[in-house]
Each structure stands twice: as structure tokens, then as C-alpha cells.
Design a protein around this nucleic acid. Structure first.
Lengths: 126, 126
DNA sequence: TACAAATATGCAAACATTATAATATTTGAA
DNA sequence: TTCAAATATTATAATGTTTGCATATTTGTA
């Protein structure tokens, strides 16, 4: 593999790249939850919840412990929440852009259409 | 769409989910760069660089401005760097796990193999 | 056995990546 | 002004892959 560390980081970010998994993590912010609770909160197929949890587990984002017949999940590192908080701040900063994007279904103008041509500043020497 | 905001956040994280794009962002931490510089740094096909840049642009992570024949890229919001820094801290915290994972090519044991069975604490009543 | 949860399987679809080729923009020279 | 070079972007297509999900099965616990 070309670049194992960055590859690993990339996989980490992709693990966050699904609405259901984000919702899981946000819910886990209020503490450890059983799979049953998570399923009730997400309102999707139980097996789908397990599958999303498996993705998060595989990247060490959450951890599980069994208690009787239930399995309780929690977020491994509180800094995950810090990460989500920073992301939230970024979205808030660009809320106007974001709303515009949502509205127009992510159609973005071509790059050149955005780029106001600007003459290169004149070098004083050479 | 079910959940547009979380959907959007998910797409944002997925935009970070590629080693080349992470490398781009890390490089941009030292300031605005021309596409030529970015290409030299990444050592991949020029068009591939443009394509990755297009992904980052589409999520408003970077912005471009033209100067003469070159196009200069920069990161829109310094908090992106904060985000990457938090991610880095998370990885460092779990470095041992991470190294183990890298070594064994991400083979993870099944969940039950990890779960030390633990008896549920006895309820005092009922 | 019944309950809780995970896993296996299979499929469709969406997605992502990359390579190649074509196109656009700016600049400077003829 | 016309052309060519340099810089980048975009279109296309082929591919490959992951991915997400549903259904069914299995595992672990009480």
C-alpha cells in the first residue's frame, strides 16, 4: 500500500460518512446505549443498525460490552465528540453556502464560471 | 431526502475520505498553493489532482482563485485544520490499536470474540 | 425455548477512481 | 489579431469497487 497511515485516516473519515452512523454517534453523546435503544432511535432495520455499528467498531470509533443479553455501545474516545463539534462549527460558518447548496440540489457552477479573472500583480523587479 | 443536514455532513466527511485529498489539505496548511505545486507534491496524474480538487471544492472545503495562467488553492476555513488536528490526536491516542490493525491488514476478530462475557449486575429489587 | 444481537449471503445500485482525450483560459509572441 | 504554449479543468468511459440493505441464519444468554 502506498501510504498506509493516510489510507487509514481516510477510512476513518469514510466511516463517519453516512447519515445513520452520524446519528448513532450523536445519540451516543448522551452516554452508553444498548443496541435496542439505538435501533429504536434510528428506525431502520435492526440488522442495518448492527451493520453500521460493525463499521464503527472496525475503525475503533465505538466499543461494545455485553451485559446479559444486551450489548452496550459507547464511543471510545471523547475526542470523537470534539471532532463532531468542530465539524458542526464549520457547517455553521458556511451555513449560507450550505443552505444554497441544499436548495439547488448540489448543482455547482463550473470553476471558471466562479473565478473572477484577476490580473497577476506586477512584479516590481525582473 | 430523509435527513438533508446529516446527509450533507456525511458527504463532507466522505470528501475527506481519500488519502490524496488528505495529503492535499495537509500541504495547504502551509498556505495557498498553485495546482502545479500540488501536482508536484502529490505525484499523480494532473487530471487526477484537478478531480480531487473538484471534490473538495464541491464541499466548500477549498477555494480557488486564478492568477495569470495558474490557479491558486487555499483552504476556506482554518477550522478544517483544527478538524484534522483533532483527528490526528485521536489516532495518536489509539496508536497501538492502529499499528496492530495496519499490521494485520485490518482483520478484526468477530465481536463475540472480543466481548469478555460479563454477568449483568444483580438488581437489588424485582 | 425465547430474546437480543451479530453475521452470512446475495443483489442492486450507487459510487468512486483513474486514464485518456478534449476543452477552456491566459499570456506573450509573431 | 492570430497562434501557440502553458496551465487547468472537464467530459467520457471503463472499470472496479464498495456499499447499503433485505432476508435468512447463527450465536450467545437467560
Amino acid at each position: 500500500m502506498r501510504d498506509p497511515i493516510r489510507q487509514f485516516k481516510a477510512e476513518f473519515f469514510r466511516a463517519l460518512g453516512h447519515p445513520a452512523r452520524l446519528k448513532l454517534l450523536e445519540f451516543l453523546q448522551s452516554g452508553e446505549k444498548s443496541v435496542t435503544e439505538l435501533q429504536a432511535h434510528l428506525e431502520i432495520e435492526p440488522s442495518a443498525v448492527s451493520q453500521h455499528l460493525a463499521v464503527l467498531r472496525s475503525k475503533n470509533i465505538v466499543e461494545a460490552r455485553r451485559e446479559g443479553t444486551s450489548v452496550l455501545y459507547s464511543v471510545r474516545d471523547p475526542q470523537i465528540f470534539e471532532l463532531l463539534a468542530v465539524a458542526r462549527r464549520i457547517f455553521n460558518n458556511h451555513l449560507i453556502d450550505t443552505q444554497a447548496m441544499l436548495k439547488q440540489a448540489s448543482r455547482e457552477p463550473r470553476l471558471e464560471a466562479r473565478l473572477k479573472t484577476k490580473r497577476a500583480p506586477q512584479r516590481t523587479t525582473r
